[in-house]
């Protein structure tokens, strides 16, 4: 982008094409939708991860907005410093500060950093791109990996169905920090995600968006199916989409015809063992129970 340009043409992409993302990459979609929601007057902070690696092979960059990557675990702290500096230098209120990080960088190694930044009430929006494992390092388990998913560090085996813990409930944790706006969304629903990012960036204070993001490489599905898989997560009630204002759920995306979780699981290599191993059917029932609880909790 030339320094002279004052407005973004409708066709202008703030994440320029030519980056090194996989075909069907959820990170690229999430970043693109985030920037469409935020507009060009923003500063973006990214942790170490696929998004950083694929968009900024020095000396190239896909970012048409100011962008900074520092480390894996400190995105929210870096954003805090930017927010503070803009205020100190009389530039606050206009330029939006946005963190975009993966699930590991957000709710595992970056937990202290995001907790501190939200508790302090910095004016920024954090977008977690949740693809449910450490994809950049080769699909290792994170605190966001769902129950019974196989990853390279929680593989299925003769005595294991894969990851034995449910996903960390990060939206609830961020709401408990007193965040004025917390929302879940999915890269499979661009309009929903763009609207929620826009809402988040217009709110003063720390806002949190948790975007479900199917990873073609890590989850094991065809590169043309990112949106389809993402939609199935929502339609099976495994990924409820809602908004919270000041800690209370105010809006929920209702599902007209809720599908069985098998429809979602069977499309992905990471759940394949549930359909081949003895006892797999019982394990699928446990996953259905998670969906059923979501239906009840959120009135899907």
């Amino acid at each position: 982008m030339s320094p002279e340009s004052k407005s973004t043409p409708k066709s202008k992409q703030l994440l320029a094409p030519g980056h090194r993302g996989c075909p069907g990459c959820c990170d690229a979609m999430a970043a693109k939708f985030t920037l469409m929601g935020a507009g060009e007057d923003c500063i973006v902070v990214s942790p170490t991860g696929c998004l950083e690696v694929m968009t900024t092979p020095f000396p190239e960059s896909s970012w048409e907005v100011p962008w900074i990557h520092s480390l894996f675990e400190n995105t929210s702290a870096v954003a805090s410093g930017i927010d503070a500096a803009l205020r100190a230098m009389g530039k606050a209120g206009k330029t939006k500060v946005i963190g975009i990080g993966g699930d590991g960088a957000t709710l595992d190694i970056g937990m202290r950093s995001i907790s501190g930044a939200f508790e302090r009430g910095h004016d920024f929006t954090y977008v977690c791109i949740d693809n449910e494992a450490y994809m950049n390092t080769g699909v290792q388990r994170s605190g966001a990996t769902p129950f019974n998913a196989a990853t390279t560090t929680s593989p299925a085996g003769k005595v294991s169905f894969g990851n034995q813990r449910p996903k960390k409930n990060m939206p609830a944790i961020m709401a408990a920090h007193g965040s004025p706006y917390v929302a879940t969304t999915s890269v499979a629903y661009p309009k929903d995600m763009i609207r929620k990012v826009k809402t988040a960036t217009e709110i003063v204070g720390p806002a949190y968006i948790h975007a479900h993001a199917p990873c073609t490489t890590g989850w094991g599905f065809d590169t043309s199916k990112t949106v389809e898989v993402g939609k199935l997560a929502v339609e099976t009630a495994l990924w409820p989409m809602f908004e919270m204002d000041d800690g209370k759920v105010t809006k929920v995306k209702k599902i007209k015809n809720i599908k069985p979780v098998e429809d979602y699981l069977k499309m992905q290599r990471r759940f394949k063992h549930l359909f081949t191993m003895e006892g797999g059917a019982e394990e699928i029932k446990k996953i259905q129970a998670i969906a059923d609880k979501n239906i009840e909790d959120f009135g899907l």
Partner: peptide
């Protein structure tokens, strides 16, 4: 870091 003249910091 300035939206009027975007730069990337901390590239790979």
């Amino acid at each position: 870091l300035d939206p009027k003249n975007p730069k990337s910091f901390g590239a790979f």
